[in-house]
Nucleic acid binder design. Structure first.
Length: 438
RNA sequence: CGGGGCGUAGCGCAGUCUGGUAGCGCGACGGUUUUGGGAACCGUAGGCCCCCGGUUCGAAUCCGGGCGCCCCGACCA
């Protein structure tokens, strides 16, 4: 993509409404535009990142055996009356009537709908287990939306639902998701720590919140420092195992949100206890037959007797994750994207757009990077160097490749790593080789 | 929903107390000189001063009502 063509409305000044870093930076980097309280339009750069985050979530869901589908945003009130939640959910649920005065709602979650779909088609224990997910916009009419996309009213969420014949199977499904979640967040460069959680309005008896550590997190969290060294990607559990040992290991290390943390009873020695701030990015629940019983999600068991299926549900705040990633990875100049979710891999900066030699080298580099599948944003605008550097730092691409007349005379280009600020002068060939391998 | 604040050019703000026909910086557009970390100068365009009503010769400014947005608290992916 060429900057001269790209719709990337960056701002030099910070809009007044933004309080926290991720919100400020997303506005300044031209990623989002607020259209109402807690509701945002996603501009090209923001949308590109949102798709990358979604894709990682999708890949890990697929790898864990879940299957993607897509349910609508609008649901009928009738469905929610079956589970009893239409009256329980309160004002957070946006209720709508259509032209025939039928009662509808904009879905805050999909337990009822998926259960309804499941029960329509699945009749036998032989069809179990099943795990279905979608990535869809949700609406919760928060009393006070804030912090940009971190707590919007409309937000993109991955939610999935597991169906098993018995509690043992349901707990295995739960452990598989537990692992998938750890892997998902780790792939985005986040340290996510699962913490025992209340089950809230979804209900159930086993639940974990996944909290990532960030200075501007909404809640205080405490954990054993051993968490900081755990790397699930480097030490995966044995393939095909029942994950019991893995789950036991991860749930035995101390971690608690401040509501649950009691310094009086916490057994972790003080010098090993980490106190930090955290952002909730995922939440998983095992709730048994809470929905399957009232809604009649029943299969025939091996003995022919009807069995209400055991269910769990699992959520990841996809749009919130973008804010969370920025909270945990930025500096005073802008965003620092982890490679896995960066909107482009390389920012190619032509310092003097009207210089024939610079332009011709840049065109050549741009073509070669594209040919090698390296996503590149080529700043070919006729702007001053300072403005280009500032924009590139702001939008936080992992690599900046700078071509200018001064370096060109010496036969070098400059390669800068955004995360560290490290700059190296390299030959054109060496710089290309570096970017294509990385 | 309780408490606080704001609404004036695309963005950030002054002007409101003390009523007199709207301004600054950034941005945009044109030009000249510039060009390795958000340039300088000259010029131009851009405003239902959130909305409705009232007071007044006259309202961005005073009064009444409404709407929107932000912040602090209780709730959530």
């Amino acid at each position: 993509m060429r900057s001269s063509q790209f719709f990337l409305p960056t701002l030099k000044e910070t809009p007044a409404e933004a309080q926290i870093a991720s919100h400020r930076l997303m506005l300044r980097a031209g990623m989002i535009r607020q259209t109402s309280a807690g509701i945002y339009a996603w501009l090209p750069l923001g949308w590109k990142v949102l798709r990358k985050i979604s894709q990682i979530v999708r890949e890990e869901q697929d790898a864990a055996g879940a299957q993607e589908l897509l349910m609508p945003t609008i649901q009928s009130a009738e469905l929610w009356r079956q589970s009893g939640r239409y009256d329980d959910y309160g004002k957070e649920m946006l209720r709508i009537t259509d032209r025939h005065d039928r009662e509808l709602l904009y879905g805050p979650t999909n337990e009822e709908m998926i259960t309804d779909i499941f029960k329509t088609f699945v009749r036998s224990y032989k069809d179990l287990p099943k795990n279905l997910y979608h990535i869809q916009w949700k609406f919760r009419d928060e009393i006070r939306p804030r912090f940009g996309v971190m707590r919007g009213r409309e937000f993109l969420m991955k939610d999935n639902y597991s169906f098993d014949l018995d509690a043992e199977g349901a707990k295995l499904s739960y452990r598989k998701m537990f692992l998938a979640y750890l892997r998902t967040f780790a792939r985005m460069g986040l340290k996510a720590i699962p913490m025992r959680a209340d089950t809230g309005p979804i209900g159930g008896d086993l639940s974990h919140e996944f909290i990532i550590l960030a200075e501007t997190g909404e809640s205080g969290v405490f954990c054993h420092k051993d968490w900081l060294d755990l790397d699930v990607l480097q030490n995966p559990p044995e393939a095909g195992s029942d994950l019991k040992d893995f789950f036991a290991k991860y749930t035995s290390i101390y971690a608690a949100t401040d509501e649950k943390h009691d310094p009086a009873t916490c057994e972790v020695p003080e010098d090993q206890l980490v106190s930090a701030r955290g952002i909730e990015v995922g939440h998983i629940f095992y709730f048994g037959t809470k929905y399957s019983k009232p809604m009649g999600a029943v299969v025939a068991g091996p003995d022919g007797e009807p069995v209400a299926v055991e269910m769990g549900s699992y959520g990841i705040g996809v749009s919130r994750l973008m804010g969370a990633i920025i909270e945990s990875s930025h500096d005073e100049n802008g965003i620092i994207w982890p490679e896995s979710v960066a909107p482009f891999h390389v920012g190619l900066i032509n310092l003097k757009a009207d210089d024939a030699a610079c332009a011709s080298l840049c065109e050549d580099l741009y073509a070669k990077l594209n040919a090698a599948g390296v996503e590149t944003l080529y700043d070919d605008r006729n702007e001053r160097p300072g403005a280009k550097f500032a924009d590139m730092d702001l939008i936080g691409l992992p690599w900046q490749l700078t071509v200018g007349p001064r370096g060109l005379k010496a036969g070098v280009v400059e390669l800068k790593r955004r995360a560290t600020g490290e700059k190296r002068e390299l030959s054109v060939e060496a710089a290309l080789a570096e970017l294509i391998k990385a």
